[in-house]
Design a protein around this nucleic acid. Structure first.
Lengths: 136, 136
DNA sequence: ATACATTTTTGTAACAATTACAAATTTGGA
DNA sequence: TCCAAATTTGTAATTGTTACAAAAATGTAT
């Protein structure tokens, strides 16, 4: 019945009231909410809820792998000139961002599930060539 | 010779000193800089430069299509629970974000140009099914 | 059950990225 | 040269996020 508590325990997270409610919200509403959206949604139900708790909890959940933190389409904007089609790769060791030449004609001006695609961004993460060499 | 001014005119942008320097910087340094990085880099050369000008200019450039504004890996973080592999599609009309079921085994644990890929994010933009219907 | 160390939550303040806005400056055309 | 329009600038406001320390809740040994 109380599967949420079981899920938390499974991920080695103590099942506090706040954590249960936040996880429950994310299970029920698959709207990719921001931390603030979650806070707003739960503020009525948990009047003492602090926004810091929401941030802390989401950080814990991400670290334990119970959910995924996504950087989607807004903010922390970076600019690049005159783009021939390519994709981005960020090294999680040295934080360098590489441009990789790969065409993705399969996306542009295509229809997927009835949606018309006009733009695509492919962002990869991993360990770059240079850092792989260093680790040897 | 002064191809930067020509490029600006081509995109219907009056070639002011600030705009020339900012575009020049983006042409020369393909490091995906943030607005602040551009400001820091040019502050010495243009001592009166205002950060607002950098933001205004980048906005103008993006709107006119002279450069691309990217949301890469940080900030404006959104959360989602328990992710089976899928990609994200955002409708530029109604701003709704859809999950699309598509597997991208081709990326994960793959090596591209010598870099080891451990994580990937595919973000598409376009006009969704519902909005396409409305426009008919 | 009690005491106590540990964990969790909370509120405030700090910080960083971005935008709003109005004044000052520069520009281009009559 | 003059003037309206465009551009730049500085300040303040806003937003998302983090730092931090105090308060509250929890779990365990006794």
């Amino acid at each position: 019945m109380n599967s949420i508590i079981e899920v938390l325990k499974e991920y080695d997270i103590a099942p506090s009231m706040q954590r249960i409610k936040i996880l429950e919200y994310l299970q029920n509403y698959k709207t990719h909410p921001t931390a603030d959206m979650i806070y707003q949604a739960l503020a009525d139900e948990i009047p003492t809820l602090s926004k810091t708790t929401v941030y802390n909890t989401l950080k814990t959940f991400s670290e334990k792998g119970i959910l995924v933190a996504l950087s989607l389409f807004e903010s922390e904007i970076r600019y690049e000139y005159n783009t021939h089609p390519h994709i981005h790769f960020k090294c999680i060791k040295c934080n360098k961002i590489y441009d990789l030449d790969r065409s993705f004609d399969l996306y542009n001006d295509d229809i997927i599930n009835g949606h018309k695609i006009t733009e695509h961004h492919v962002n990869l993460k991993g360990i770059c060539k240079v850092c792989l060499e260093k680790d040897k």
